[in-house]
Every structure is written in C-alpha cells, then in structure tokens.
Design a protein around this nucleic acid. Structure first.
Length: 477
DNA sequence: AATGCCGGGAG
DNA sequence: CTCCCGGCATT
C-alpha cells in the first residue's frame, strides 16, 4: 500500500487488506513510484514533527500561486499536518495504529505487534522512524528491540511455546490433509462429524506423507514463500508452506511476510486488499469455539473435549483433527465490529454478518466465529482483538473520510480474461484469499476526491495522484 | 455529464 | 521516475 496512506491518508484501515501492496505486475512500477514518493516525505515529516518544529510541514503543499488557497483547502492541509504531527508525537503507537491491517494487503492476520505492518509496507521508512526515535528516546527505547527488519530477515517468533513444534507438526498434517483431498478443511461445516473412520484413515495417510516428506525440519522460513503457484496437491513443499503459513495464526512475523509475498504475487486491484485472517474452529459436536491460534484451539480441544491435562503442552497431534481452519474477512469483521463501537451510533444493530471469504468458509462459520471470539478473552487477546483495536483506531482517525465502506473481496465484475488461467481449480480452492481478478475495478469510493473538493480551478491543490488521474491519495475511501 | 482512476506512454 | 492523458467504469 502506499506508504503514503500512512502519512496522509486518514485511512480506513480496513480495506484493503493489506498492503495494497499492490501487486499487479503491470502496476508494480506505479506503486513503487508511490512508495518512493511517500518515503521521501514521510521520514522528513516525521523528523520535523519530532523536533517540534512545524515549519517544514507548513511549507509543504503551499499552492504555487501562493495565495490561491481556499480556506477549505488550507484547513485540510493543516489537518493533515496536525494529524501527522500528533501521530508522531504519540510515538509508535500512533503509527502502529494507523498501520492497520487494512492496508496490509491483505491478509491481516495477527498482529500482536502491529509494528510489522509498517515494516511491510515501508521498511525503509520504518528504519528511518526507528532511528529518529532512537535519537529522541535513547538507545533503550522499548521499540528499539522491535526494530523492523528488512523483509529478507524474518525474525523467528520470540515467545514460541514448547508446544510450538508440535503445533507445527499438527499444522503440517492439517495442511497436507487439506491439500490431499479432504474437503474437511475447505468445508468445515460439513465436517463436524469428526471422529469417523474416514478421518482415521486420512490421518494415517497424512502421517505417512508428512514423515516421508520431512527428512528434517519443516522450514517455515518466510523468505521461501513462493507465490501460491501450482497446486500440485499432495506434497509440494512450496504449496504446503504457503498454506501452512497462512494458517499459522500465531506467528506474526511469518504471517506478515507471507502477506507481503502474497500481495506481490497477487494481482489484486488496489485497495481490494486481502484482509483475510485465519481462525481455527473447533469441530467438536456442538462446539463452535473459534480461536485465533492453532495452539489455542488445540489446547481447547485437548482440555475441553479430550479431557487432558490443561497444564501440559504435550500434544500428540490428535487435536488437530478436531478443528479446522477458517478464514475470516477482516475487512468485514472490522466493519461489523465498528458498528458496535462507541463511535458508531448504530450500536443496536444485529450482529455483523461477514461475507463469505470466497469458497472457504460457510457464512455460519463466520458468524459463530465472531461471537466466540468476543468470548474468548485470554486466548484471543494475542491476535484478533488487537487487530481490531488497531483498526478501530484507524477509523477514529478518519479525518475527512466520513464513512468507511465495506468492499467484499470477490465482488463484481468478472474480468473477461483472467491472467490466472493457468492456475488450476484446486489451487483456487486452496488459495485463501480471493483474488479479485485482474481487470476488476473497485467501486468508486464515497469520499470526495481532490477534484471535487478543490475543483478544476484549484487543480494545483490536488494531490499528486489526482493530478495524474491516479487514485487519490488524500481522500481515500 | 462529471468523476475516479487504470493502463499506457512520453520524456 | 515523474507527469500526462485516453478511455472506461461509476455515479
């Protein structure tokens, strides 16, 4: 996404999942351009703000005409500037908040530390920010340790629990399973009848596959993630990894990186960012429990359904077969939740309904998930909630944007020609996010753009993008 | 008709 | 890259 958004865009962190990291090959250049543009101004602005000086900011965007600024326009600029300044002053938190998942192209899954979002979108800038922070806060600034790393360096999750390994194994099994054939994962709703012969057999097969395909350790190295390419079903490591990563809810770093990759490969139209989050749903009869982490769901199954010692992290992997992954459209989720927040007057409405994220999850899943989520404090506190939190903050920061629209991912127009024709259907099913086909065009936003706000007469006041007939950067949707 | 902005192209 | 703009989708 344009890092620009981080600076100016009042953004709705909700959409776009992500990074708008744009990604269509064709447009990559363009995006890059934007990013650079942003980077230039971003750090600069930030520094000025940190220094307490606004002069630099003030000078920005002054109409070439010198006095051609209309009150309205002026106000706007000031707002932006102030907003930025404030943000910076608040330190990382501010920034982080704004770096809502929305932008992260997509797949905003967990973000216990939203920091990473920023990182993804604009590593260089982040570095700048960090250094600036350091300068003002000293070497011991808390964030120093979290200093964003170049995409090439994906830090390993720090607080991996002992059960982490088991976790992976379980996940691996699950993934393999899903890739192999079982519709269970893809169609959770049809699976709730878990412990059955079929599953057993299946499990066995999986175990075999898994062990044979892993002479050593499964590598979760995010850097290795390739585009969800061909879906050769069974044991393609790349594919598996991809899937695994996407389903590995408790690993933020990996997650993020994955998102990035994903976005790059994905020719998703700008702003139709993919903000899918993987959740884990208990398939135990009458249990609709949904947690954000595999370990969490496993623990749940282990203790609640299998009656095992809750203290023990030991897992024989059996839990794995009692839950499935589901994907949740965070955009929708946030939309729905936002209606429940104080900032929204429509608090009494019905529970938010999440549009089905493509082929993966039945509606009911989402709904139940949402409910469960709000009732599973401790376990969820590490992911989803925080995400939502950030998003909300973003909304609060909307500035000019009066309303955030919900844009479902797979909507509208089917492009006549898909660039993904070579991808087989299986893949499509496995690929989590629905990529809107290239060529699709996002619906026009509601916000007034520069053109409308300033009018042709004051074209020089338009944001650069508008001037170039590109997507407005100032008044985003 | 006015807008918004994608896709391309020129320099 | 930056800067434009044709042309099409949307409003």
């Amino acid at each position: 996404m344009d890092s620009r958004y981080i600076l100016e865009k009042p953004l709705a962190g909700t959409r776009v999942g992500g990074p708008d990291f744009s990604c269509r090959a064709g447009r990559s250049v363009l995006h890059d351009t934007r990013v650079h543009t942003v980077e230039k101004s971003g750090p600069v602005l930030y520094k000025h703000a940190m220094d307490g000086g606004c002069a630099a900011l003030k000078s920005e965007k002054v109409s070439p005409k010198g006095n051609g600024l209309s009150p309205g326009g002026r106000v706007w600029h000031d707002m932006e500037k102030n907003g930025l300044g404030d943000q910076r002053d608040t330190g990382y938190t501010g920034i982080l908040k704004r770096a809502s998942p929305t932008h992260c192209p997509g797949i905003n899954r967990q973000l216990p530390c939203s920091f990473m979002h920023l990182d993804i979108r604009n590593p260089g800038k982040q570095a700048d920010l960090v250094s600036s922070l350091r300068a003002t806060q000293g070497p011991n600034a808390p964030l120093t340790e979290k200093q964003p790393l170049p995409s090439t360096h994906i830090p390993v999750p720090r607080n991996r629990k002992p059960s982490g390994h088991a976790d992976k194994e379980v996940m691996a099994a699950t993934v393999l399973t899903s890739l192999s054939t079982s519709p269970l994962v893809l169609y959770p709703s049809s699976a709730p009848t878990v412990p059955e012969p079929a599953n057993r057999a299946w499990k066995e097969v999986l175990s075999a596959s898994y062990s044979s395909s892993t002479s050593g350790n499964w590598s979760w190295d995010a850097s290795d993630q390739s585009v969800p390419s061909t879906p050769s079903p069974p044991l393609s490591n790349d594919n598996n990894k991809n899937f695994l990563l996407s389903s590995h809810g408790d690993d933020v770093n990996e997650d993020i990186t994955e998102s990035t990759h994903f976005m790059f490969e994905d020719p998703i139209p700008r702003k139709r960012k993919n903000s899918m989050k993987v959740m884990f749903k208990c398939l135990w009869k009458n249990c609709e429990k949904v947690l954000s982490t595999s370990s969490g769901i496993q623990r749940h199954i282990r203790t609640v359904h299998l009656g095992r010692n809750s203290d023990s992290d030991y897992s024989d992997g059996e839990e794995d077969f009692y839950y499935s992954e589901i994907e949740v459209n965070m955009d929708s989720l946030t939309e729905g939740l936002s209606s429940l927040t104080p900032t929204s007057p429509t608090t009494a409405g019905p529970p938010p309904v999440f549009p089905p994220p493509l082929t993966d999850v039945p509606h009911s899943e989402h709904i139940s998930m949402n409910n469960s989520q709000s009732h599973t404090p401790s376990l969820l506190s590490q992911s989803a909630p925080s995400t939502l939190c950030h998003i909300r903050t973003d909304h609060a920061y909307q500035g000019p944007v009066t309303h955030v629209r919900t844009v479902s991912i797979g909507e509208k127009r089917q492009p006549a020609a898909s660039t993904h024709t070579t991808v087989n259907k299986n893949h499509a099913l496995i690929t989590p996010a629905a990529k809107s086909t290239p060529g699709t065009r996002k619906p026009r936003g509601e916000a007034k753009k520069c053109r409308k706000v300033y009018g042709m007469e004051k074209r020089d006041m338009w944001c650069t993008a508008c001037r170039w007939k590109k997507a407005c950067q100032r008044f985003t949707d």
